[in-house]
Simulated assay, not measured.
Amino acid sequence: MIMISDDAVLLTYDSESTQGDGARRYVLRSSIWKRHDDRWQLLFHQGTVKERARASS
């Protein structure tokens, strides 16, 4: 998570799922969240399909 202002963050993460045919799907996800009146609101989300998951650190 990266703070991009006092009331906004950029969150990035990897997701993995299994499709109906058994194929694995890997997606890099990015979201921008903004705090408004003590609530977090999703402003933007993007998913980018990848060839495979990156290695864990």
Rank of each mutant, 00 (worst) to 15 (best):
R52A: 11
R35E: 14
S5D: 10
K34R: 08
R39W: 01
A53C: 11
K50M: 13
V49K: 10
A55I: 14
V49F: 09
T18I: 09
D37G: 11
D14Y: 05
S31T: 13
E51N: 15
R29L: 12
D14M: 02
Q41P: 02
I32F: 02
W40N: 10
D7Q: 08
D21H: 08
I4W: 02
S56K: 14
E16H: 07
I4C: 05
R25S: 14
R29S: 10
D14T: 06
D7R: 00
S57D: 13
S17T: 04
L28K: 06
S31W: 01
A8I: 02
E16D: 06
H45C: 05
D14F: 05
S57C: 09
K50E: 12
K34I: 12
D38M: 09
L28Q: 10
T48M: 13
S30Q: 12
W40A: 07
L10C: 03
Y13V: 01
I32C: 02
Y26E: 06
L43E: 08
L42T: 04
E16S: 06
I4F: 04
D14P: 03
R39F: 04
E51G: 15
R54K: 10
Q46E: 15
D7G: 03
R35H: 07
Q19W: 00
R29P: 03
M3I: 09
I2D: 00
S56F: 15
A23H: 07
E51D: 15
A55P: 15
E51M: 15
Q41I: 14
L11C: 05
V9H: 02
R39E: 14
K34T: 13
L10T: 04
R25W: 11
Y26C: 14
D14C: 02
L42K: 06
S31H: 07
H36P: 03
Q41D: 08
L43F: 04
T12L: 05
S30D: 09
T12N: 12
S30A: 15
D21L: 09
R54M: 11
Y26V: 14
I2S: 01
D6E: 07
R24V: 11
E16C: 03
G20K: 12
L42F: 03
D21R: 07
S17D: 06
W33R: 01
I4S: 04
K50Q: 14
S56N: 15
Q41Y: 04
Y13P: 01
D7C: 03
G47Y: 06
S30M: 13
W40H: 06
R54L: 11
M3D: 13
S15D: 01
Q46F: 04
S17N: 05
V49M: 09
L11Q: 02
R24D: 02
R29D: 10
L10N: 00
V27L: 10
D6N: 04
D7A: 05
S15L: 02
Y13G: 01
A8W: 00
L10F: 03
M3P: 12
R25D: 12
T12E: 13
M1V: 14
D37E: 15
S17K: 05
M3V: 11
T18C: 00
I4G: 04
D37M: 12
D21W: 08
Y13Q: 02
L43N: 05
W33L: 10
Q46W: 02
S5C: 03
H36G: 08
L28N: 07
E51I: 15
Y13N: 04
